[in-house]
Design a protein around this nucleic acid. Structure first.
Length: 482
RNA sequence: GCCGCUAUCGUCUAGUGGUUAGGACACCGGCCUCUCACGCCGGCAGCAGGGGUUCGACUCCCCUUAGCGGUACCA
């Protein structure tokens, strides 16, 4: 039978790296086995629902190139794929459970529930529903707004399921609650909708976050009540923040699209996230998506939760940037260049700058942060640099020597500029770096970057000279010692 | 509280009874060099604790501890 897995997010907020990692594992597994990846929207909580969240979710999946075979916008033969459009299905199956004695209507008020919960807590007992309505035989309809339907947990015995990466897990039925399967607003709860849909959509493998382990016992009991064969279960480790608690806002960026904004490539994020909780058993770190599909399988999944390490993500991103060819990289950079309002530069010029900057970039955004001087005049000089290279005995004199030498240059390129400066160093008996550093600061405003002669050649004679002249004026105005 | 999951360098991990416990990120040296980055070379650093089982445990079992999760008409 062909593998069918699903990613079933709830559209209530921005897609979180933890949720998306679950999507990635499901997607990789489906692609590895040549199966189907189903996207199902669990929008059964009307209070937390947000249309914006759905939009962000689809955008995130598309950005990461996690395509789905069935689900929103693509359809499929087991739809609808929005749970809010399947209410009649849940009603039918919930009523079936009631009719067969596996579930019951409950009219307990919110107030009563709160009260018994508080009482139980006060006595140090587990806060559980007291099964008040279990044997009352209350009649009703799934659409009744004054009732819920609860599942009847067997009073005795144990329920066991096999987790494919953790082994057998067992629960005492006594520890399970008569949980609600259909809410008074007519919507199902997660537990119920989840198993009905997984069954109806012929899901073969449930791969979800480990926070679902404690409720899997309930799910198994429902499968049994329906007489359905449960899917295989595999509970995935979760992603933690630096302090080892569940990753959240206070750990910094958690929304996947924030990483896009920061200049992370989707391939790098996919690679990175896959390697939290999964390993192919080799020492390879960088994988193309095709390789991941080929190598990914359940047996490489680590049961322990892992910490999200931004440094490593950034390193990985730099590996992708460095390996990318200049044309491809320029394509990724073009929107950022436009954002800065830089236009009118030839493709040839841009490609050249990309080639100069590539090994210096770790994030896409670094390009515009680290090399603005290729696009506009420096508006200020690095403060430390000024102290080190401008406020120095003879700095002005050396820049003036350079101006004179450059002015005489017919061909202004890497070789001729370097030759000129080294010659000056020789003549004046000064180390070349005392010419190089102030010149760099003069033309870029910065103290670091590509080789100076590459910069000069790229900028050209006219811009180089005018920028050095401006620096000389700056020195005259601001530095007494020279 | 109760239930459950987990446990190898700071972090991500390899390891499935016999290894000098391997790799990667980060960090620290060095080389290269006009700076920065890349690259290369080297270094620091780990089996949570205690009991078993075994000729032999990082590896298997139990307990403890710690971390995390669940305990809703949220998912």
């Amino acid at each position: 039978m062909t593998v069918r897995v699903r990613f079933a997010p709830s559209p209530t907020g921005k897609p979180h790296v933890g949720n998306i990692r679950t999507a990635i594992f499901n997607w990789l597994y489906a692609r590895h086995r040549g199966g189907k990846f189903i996207l199902r929207i669990e929008d059964t909580d009307r209070e937390r629902y947000s249309p914006e969240a759905l939009k962000n979710l689809l955008e995130t999946l598309r950005w990461l190139k996690l395509d789905w075979d069935e689900g929103p916008e693509v359809g499929g033969e087991y739809g609808p794929y929005f749970q809010s459009e399947r209410l009649d299905i849940y009603h039918r199956y919930a009523q079936e459970l009631v009719d067969n004695g596996y579930a019951y209507y409950c009219t307990c008020s919110k107030e009563r529930l709160d009260r018994i919960r508080k009482e139980a807590e006060a006595k140090g007992l587990p806060p559980r529903y007291d099964r008040h309505c279990r044997e009352l035989g209350i009649k009703g309809n799934p659409t009744d707004t004054d009732k819920v339907i609860r599942f009847k947990i067997p009073l005795e015995g144990t329920t066991t399921f096999h987790d494919e990466i953790r082994g057998d897990i067992r629960f005492e039925n006594k520890s399970l609650d008569d949980f609600v399967i259909l809410k008074s607003d007519g919507f199902p709860t997660y537990h119920f909708a989840n198993i009905v849909d997984d069954h109806l959509m012929k899901v073969t493998d449930v791969m979800r976050a480990e926070e679902w382990i404690p409720s899997t016992g309930k799910h198994i009991l429902m499968y049994r009540a329906f007489g359905w064969e449960p899917p295989r279960f595999c509970h995935l480790p979760i992603i933690l923040g630096a302090d080892r608690s569940k990753l959240s806002k206070r750990h910094g960026a958690v929304d996947v699209l924030e990483y896009r904004n920061m200049g992370i490539l989707p391939e790098a994020l996919l690679n990175f996230l896959t390697l939290i909780g999964w390993s192919p058993g080799t020492e390879q770190e960088i994988f193309s998506t095709e390789e991941l599909i080929r190598l990914f399988d359940k047996d490489g999944i680590n049961p322990a939760s892992g910490v999200f390490n931004l440094d490593k993500l950034v390193w990985m991103n730099s590996e992708y940037i460095h390996k990318m060819d200049d044309e491809k990289l320029l394509e990724k950079l073009t929107p950022l260049i436009h954002q800065r309002g830089w236009s009118g530069f030839s493709r040839e010029y841009l490609i050249h700058i990309v080639s100069l900057m590539k090994t210096r970039m770790r994030l896409l955004n670094d390009f515009v942060e680290l090399a603005p001087y290729f696009f506009e005049e420096p508006t200020q000089y690095d403060e430390k640099g000024v102290r080190k290279h401008f406020k120095k005995e003879g700095a002005k004199k050396r820049l003036n020597l350079i101006l004179r030498a450059f002015d005489r240059l017919g061909n202004f390129n890497e070789e001729t500029t370097e030759k000129a400066i080294r010659a000056l160093a020789e003549e004046t008996g000064t180390a070349a770096k005392f010419f190089i550093h102030p010149t760099r600061l003069a033309v870029t405003g910065m103290t670091f970057g590509p080789g100076l002669f590459e910069i000069l050649a790229t900028l050209g004679k006219q811009k180089s000279i005018s920028r050095i002249k401006r620096a000389v004026e700056f020195i005259e105005k601001n530095c007494e010692i020279c």
